[in-house]
Every structure is written in C-alpha cells, then in structure tokens.
Amino acid sequence: MLSQQIITLIDKELKKYPADQRQSAVMAALRFVQDEKGWIAPDDMSDIAEYLGMPQMAVFEVATFYHMYNLKPMGQYTLTVCTNLSCQLCGSGDTLEHLHKRLGIGLGEVTANGKYGIREGECMGACVDAPMFSINNKQLCGRLTNEKIDQILAELDKQ
C-alpha cells in the first residue's frame, strides 16, 4: 500500500502532465517510495503500477533502468560516491578508501547497524566540486577531504 503521503505527492506530480499520461509520474512515484522507505520493493512497484494504471513490468523496467533507485535496502543514509573522471583525478579513490576505513563497508554494502550504505555513482554534473558524494540523493557534498568526511559523518551519527 502506498502511504497517504506518497499518494499526495504523486497527485501533485500528476498535475504536471496531461491527464491521459499518468505514467509520466512513475519516476517521481518511485523516488517518493525510496525517500520514505529507503528502497523500492516489488510490491511497491505493483502498487505504483496500479495507481498510475500502467503494466507492472513497465514500472520494473523503469526502476531497474535508472541507477539511483535502490532495489535493496541501502542503509538509512546512502552515500553515493562519484568515481568518474574529474572526481577520480581529484581523489575519489581516497574518498572511498576513507569511507571504507570509517564505516567498514565497501561499495554496495550496508553497515551492520543499517545506518550507512555506500554506492558508486556516475557523473553528478557537479565536477568542479570534485571529489564528492551525495546523501540519499538529496544533498551533494563536494570538495571532500578526510576531515570534511569525518565532520559529515559526525553530523549524521547524531541524527
């Protein structure tokens, strides 16, 4: 079941598109589910399919095509580290290394307490701020140094 909050958000999104193009809201709908639950389960996809009147398989295609959707739980805070060229040149390797040391997990893994997960990202379109990661696809943290990473993690630890 989609929560009332998600339905409200989807309904708002639907206003952007012609009335007979409800499918256009599928990307947003999946995003709302992920924002609420941290990841998207097949049941959520079925619910979205039903709500938007589209085939389940079409939702599944979308959910698996776009890489920012979590198809499994990725922790309360998913840190997506850009490792593309500009970031690589500016030390994204060190960023990953530091996260690995601090959190004890590698790419695609989640800490035992379920608090953090790390994913590898492709170019975020913010290369001048390299190296960077995003938190839950909402907030970009750039020009990372080990000290800055520690600060960010300390903030998140508190929440």
Binding site: K16, M27, Y66, H67, E122
Partner: peptide, 9 residues
C-alpha cells in the same frame, strides 16, 4: 514543469 531524472546519462 520540472521533471527529475534519476541516474541515467
């Protein structure tokens, strides 16, 4: 209207 992508170059 703004439409957000979600990770596909």
């Amino acid at each position: 209207h703004n439409h957000m992508g979600y990770g596909a170059y």
